[in-house]
Design a protein around this nucleic acid. Sequence first.
DNA 1: GTTCTTGCAAAATATTTGCAAGACG
DNA 2: CGTCTTGCAAATATTTTGCAAGAAC
Lengths: 133, 133
Amino acid sequence: MEAIEILNYHKLKRTSCREGILEVMMGSKQALSESEIRENFSGSYDRTTFYRSFKTLEANRIIHKIVIDNLFVKYALGNALNPKKMHAHFYCNDCNAVECLNNTPINTHPLPKGYTCSDTELIIKGLCAKCNQ
Amino acid sequence: MEAIEILNYHKLKRTSCREGILEVMMGSKQALSESEIRENFSGSYDRTTFYRSFKTLEANRIIHKIVIDNLFVKYALGNALNPKKMHAHFYCNDCNAVECLNNTPINTHPLPKGYTCSDTELIIKGLCAKCNQ
DNA sequence: GTTCTTGCAAAATATTTGCAAGACG
DNA sequence: CGTCTTGCAAATATTTTGCAAGAAC
């Protein structure tokens, strides 16, 4: 799926900022921060515009946000076919990379009486293959 | 264990700010934010001092930090006997309360080849018993 | 042409740092 | 008394908001 198709599908206006963000993200295996996306960007946009674009894309479940402690905020593409499917995220303590672990299932967890769960966030921290050498 | 004992045990100077923070936290079943702790505080301290105190207490594993997306940063007492033991956190979407789920085990999760895990963070979001009524 | 998006400037917020004064042990 | 802690002021960083101009459809 191309960036433009995604925008059309969600009935979002095709602007070069949104299109560029999606292209950068589709070209990366890792989650990217606002500044990382801006660095890989051909055009030049105001940060405000980036933040607003992220918000729109997130509201449409095209991308999702991952917050590592308070250190990093990164964004990753959602699974367009199954946007609600939960998945775990991996954070490398060494190179700070963040990636989605689509094959790591999240088990259901027992909760105290009367509690209900709507969502689960699992962040696994450690060292990625490169940093482990 | 009293606040002063905890400080002594970790060879930290007994200052009224640290002592007060620990007392407020020991009196709460929930994780508290910097501002919530400051509100429940008898004395009056600079925010800088609070942040530095949190940092010291966290470095000594007396408390730990829980970050909910980018919305809330809260602190909770660690388990003094077993500070490294991981546990899950519950976040209530309605009342924004955060609490430690000490009885919820965190399973080990399969990782890609070459990856190693040093820590796991699990945040379960939903509604707490009160907000579920 | 109407509605949504952008850029700019400015505000809000959380957190950190340097430095001198003060408290702890 | 030496070291660690505090308060103040200021810096940093991130994100949000209002408003007018501009682009999309």
